[in-house]
């Protein structure tokens, strides 16, 4: 199992588990890591996460399948999300989606023939002041007209946006530095003492009044 992640990710995977009081909590971050390596959630990736989180592959898959960002089938290198929810709808989101689908040659939920793009009809992406909202690999691209989108597609095809739009799966390029640092036991003991002291103080105060 532990052989699944490539070396740099394996270390991050193991660190992730230690950030939580219970290993299972690391499920979602670990699944993002699987997608960073594979682009989607492979069966081997799911089993690796099950082993790290002390759960079953069925549980991990059950969890993963609940969330829109996790893909049990491969998606494009660039996963394009177009919001059609109400604010974007009022600003031409549905029309933008049609344009994206016809430009990339794949319907929402599908993948382009060359495997470079996949399209998703998104729910509100919380960028409604710049509607209609388009994301590529969960980065806001702010192409608000068909023409702007077409330029973006050219840039993506020619690799000019690698610096700000990494391939699908690379969720956060900023890594947490270091694990937990609060000395848990000490803190607990200290807190208990402080709490008792305060309680005694309060009791004393009550008695005197």
């Amino acid at each position: 199992m532990s052989g699944f992640f490539r070396a740099d990710l394996r270390q991050r995977a193991e660190e992730l588990v230690t950030l939580y009081p219970r290993p299972r909590s690391a499920t979602i971050p670990l699944l993002h890591l699987v997608q960073e390596q594979e682009g989607y959630l492979s069966e081997a990736g799911i089993e690796a996460v099950a082993a790290l989180t002390e759960t079953t592959p069925a549980e991990v898959r059950g969890t993963a399948s609940f969330y829109d960002m996790f893909h049990l089938e491969p998606v494009g290198r660039y996963h394009v999300g177009v919001c059609t929810n109400v604010a974007c709808l009022l600003a031409g989101g549905a029309e933008m989606l049609e344009h994206v689908e016809s430009t990339l040659g794949c319907a929402a939920g599908g993948r382009s023939a060359d495997g470079l793009f996949s399209v998703e009809e998104s729910e509100c992406l919380a960028d409604c002041n710049l509607a209609p909202c388009v994301q590529v690999n969960y980065r806001y691209v702010r192409t608000r007209t068909p023409e702007e989108f077409d330029v973006l597609v050219e840039d993506l095809r020619s690799g000019r946006r690698e610096h700000d739009i990494p391939p699908h799966g690379t969720h956060s390029r900023v890594k947490r530095q270091g694990g937990l640092r609060a000395p848990k036991d000490e803190v607990a003991a200290e807190r208990a003492r402080a709490r008792d002291a305060r309680a005694q103080r309060d009791a004393a105060r009550e008695e005197t009044t």
């Binding site: 969330y67 829109d68 960002m69 640092r181 609060a182 000395p183």
Partner: peptide, 15 residues
């Protein structure tokens, strides 16, 4: 005397 750990936990797309 106060110690605290803060973990940024990503969601994965579910309102």
């Amino acid at each position: 005397d106060f110690s605290l750990d803060l973990v940024v936990h990503p969601g994965a797309g579910a309102y």
